[in-house]
Simulated scan of single mutants.
Amino acid sequence: MSIEAAVRESLATATGAILVTAEAGRAGETVQHLRAAKADIVLLLLDSSVPAIERAMLVAAIGPLAVELASYTRIGAIDVMAGAEEGDVAAAARFLAAARSTTGQILRVAPEI
């Protein structure tokens, strides 16, 4: 199972959660998707395949987007490092979905050392 599939499965029971997956070369479109999503929480999944500069731009956008969207939705991001376990990423997604007073949070999930 892919990391994205594991996260989607873990959010299946989270009411009002939308997952937006970042893709290489589409940072601007990703921000537009985040802005357009209408949900209790919108989670951005940053896979390790997204180039570093785009990852940095998208991570930097989360705080301002949280302020912009605060009246109707929460936003969070999961920054997945190469080698991270699917279960750990899914757990991070469940945590952010359940943390009802949290917006603008970015969780980095790295492999165990």
Rank of each mutant, 00 (worst) to 15 (best):
residue 2 S to R: 14
residue 2 S to N: 15
residue 5 A to G: 13
residue 8 R to Y: 05
residue 10 S to K: 13
residue 12 A to S: 14
residue 13 T to I: 14
residue 14 A to Q: 13
residue 15 T to I: 11
residue 16 G to E: 08
residue 18 I to N: 11
residue 20 V to S: 03
residue 20 V to N: 06
residue 21 T to H: 09
residue 22 A to I: 10
residue 22 A to M: 12
residue 24 A to P: 13
residue 25 G to W: 10
residue 25 G to L: 12
residue 30 T to Y: 10
residue 31 V to L: 05
residue 33 H to V: 06
residue 35 R to V: 07
residue 36 A to V: 12
residue 37 A to F: 12
residue 38 K to P: 03
residue 39 A to H: 09
residue 40 D to G: 15
residue 41 I to L: 02
residue 44 L to R: 10
residue 46 L to E: 02
residue 50 V to N: 08
residue 51 P to S: 08
residue 51 P to G: 06
residue 54 E to R: 03
residue 56 A to F: 12
residue 58 L to K: 01
residue 60 A to W: 01
residue 60 A to F: 01
residue 63 G to V: 03
residue 63 G to P: 03
residue 65 L to E: 00
residue 67 V to K: 11
residue 69 L to D: 02
residue 69 L to Q: 08
residue 74 R to E: 00
residue 75 I to K: 00
residue 77 A to Y: 00
residue 77 A to W: 00
residue 79 D to F: 10
residue 80 V to Y: 03
residue 82 A to V: 11
residue 83 G to P: 02
residue 83 G to I: 02
residue 84 A to Q: 01
residue 86 E to Q: 14
residue 86 E to Y: 05
residue 92 A to G: 09
residue 92 A to S: 13
residue 92 A to Y: 09
residue 94 R to Y: 08
residue 96 L to W: 06
residue 101 S to W: 11
residue 102 T to K: 05
residue 102 T to S: 11
residue 108 R to D: 06
residue 109 V to T: 05
residue 110 A to C: 06
residue 113 I to H: 12
